[in-house]
């Protein structure tokens, strides 16, 4: 099957530092790709390049049959087809939850308001926030905000959803309420590229795991194999250092070590 997204040999540098040094990646329809790796390995940058928040220096990115890596001002049309959620939620603080949800579909996609509103109510109910439609973002907990952010992205009916460490800023007890929503989405067949530090979640949700280090994809494989028996030494060290550090600091949550990207 033709992939939805093709990333071909992209390079990206900041101030002479090569953050991405020739990354290629295909994502097929309905596939969930999880990207892991140490801080600064370029995994967040990869997601940001895909929907044009960062301009790439070299290479190509294709969404279905359209090259999207050099669109410039017209990139907004492509972004209407790619959803993205960040670690800092970034709800719009001056709008109620419902207005946050309606903004994209009504203004960018020009859909009728009533139609989107009905859908939004239904989605809020599914993520357990039916009573929060008229709340202001600041009255919500971090986990609730992040679920709203997910609904906001989903209401655009994106062909591809990018999740950039969406639980990194959350208190530990709120992580699962957000990740359960993501697992739901995966079961409904949503195509996703996910950057995360939650290893058990990665194992549960991924069809394919990419391990990035120093700007390249160092290893990729199905989760069952990758987490049990990584082929490369670097991936093995990464996974080991993880459990070692977290085993001493947080015995009850071996996969939950927060880390900044």
């Amino acid at each position: 099957m033709e992939p939805i997204l093709r990333v071909k040999e992209i390079y990206k540098g900041f101030d002479g530092n090569g953050v991405l040094q020739g990354v290629s990646l295909d994502i097929r329809e309905g596939e969930v790709v999880v990207i892991i790796g140490p801080s600064g390995c370029g995994k967040s940058t990869l997601l940001r390049c895909i929907n044009g928040l960062e301009k790439i220096d070299r290479g190509e990115i294709w969404l279905r049959d359209q090259r999207i890596s050099d669109l410039g001002k017209d990139m907004y049309r492509v972004r209407q087809r790619i959803g993205m959620v960040f670690q800092s939620y970034d709800l719009f603080p001056h709008m109620k939850v419902m207005d946050n949800l309606l903004l994209g579909p009504v203004k960018a996609l020009k859909k009728p308001r009533e139609e989107v509103e009905a859908e939004a109510v239904e989605m809020l109910r599914r993520v357990g926030l039916a009573d929060k439609a008229q709340a202001l973002p600041r009255t919500l907990s971090g986990g609730q905000k992040q679920r709203v952010a997910l609904v906001r992205a989903m209401l655009m009916h994106p062909e591809l959803l990018l999740l950039d460490e969406i639980t990194a800023a959350l208190d530990p007890e709120m992580v699962s309420e957000v990740l359960n929503v993501v697992i739901d989405l995966a079961e409904q067949g949503m195509t996703m590229a996910i950057v995360t530090h939650e290893m058990r979640f990665a194992e549960a949700v991924a069809d394919r795991v990419l391990f990035m280090e120093q700007g390249v994809i160092a290893e990729e494989g199905v989760p069952e194999e990758f987490f049990r028996e990584p082929r490369t030494e670097r991936a093995r060290r990464f996974l080991q250092s993880f459990t070692y550090a977290s085993a001493r600091k947080r015995p009850r949550d071996p996969a939950g070590m927060p880390e900044d990207a």
């Binding site: 928040l53 049309r77 972004r79 960040f86 970034d90 992205a153």
Partner: peptide
């Protein structure tokens, strides 16, 4: 915050929509 602009961009808003609905109201406040 810069991330607010990016969140708007990720919804596929045009630059003008982004400033009209997201940045300007917060900036005015």
């Amino acid at each position: 915050e810069k991330s607010q602009r990016e969140a708007g961009e990720c919804l596929g808003l045009t630059r003008w929509q982004n400033i009209r609905y997201i940045l300007l109201p917060q900036a005015l406040a």
